[in-house]
């Protein structure tokens, strides 16, 4: 893993995700091992990407400990977040959908 992008932080050797040390813009490339992966959407600091392929249902490991399970297959370098993993305890509450609807409606003059 010596070849891995310095913006990707591996917290524990068992982890199957990296944590972003800095934001990565849409269209930028990140290097994981010998792979160069183009990031489709902006990723914020502190977000996670897959260190390798993760199968639907597999545990997500960060800090060497499980933080939830994949809800679908995740490709290497893909953003790992609430759209493809879930808690094994309580569901995660987010305003992502509300914000997207708001921004779409505002752009369309509230009549779409």
């Amino acid at each position: 893993m010596t070849d891995t992008d310095s913006r990707l932080l591996l917290l524990s050797p068992q982890d199957n995700v990296f944590v972003l040390r800095a934001a990565i813009k849409a269209g930028e490339t990140i290097r994981i091992g010998r792979l160069d992966i183009t990031v489709p959407d902006r990723l914020g600091i502190g977000h996670k990407v897959a260190r390798g392929a993760i199968r639907d249902g597999e545990p997500i490991i960060k800090y060497g400990a499980p933080i939830g399970s994949a809800t679908r297959d995740i490709a290497v370098g893909e953003h790992v977040h609430i759209h493809n993993i879930k808690s094994n305890y309580t569901p995660t509450h987010s305003l992502t959908e509300a914000r997207e609807t708001y921004e779409r409606n505002r752009a369309g003059g509230w009549h779409d």
Binding site: V19, G44, H47, I67, G68, S87, H93
Partner: peptide
């Protein structure tokens, strides 16, 4: 869970 919407915006995915 003890988890606010902004936690998810900041990259946290689950309560664990």
């Amino acid at each position: 869970g003890s988890f606010a919407a902004g936690n998810a915006d900041g990259g946290l995915s689950t309560i664990e």
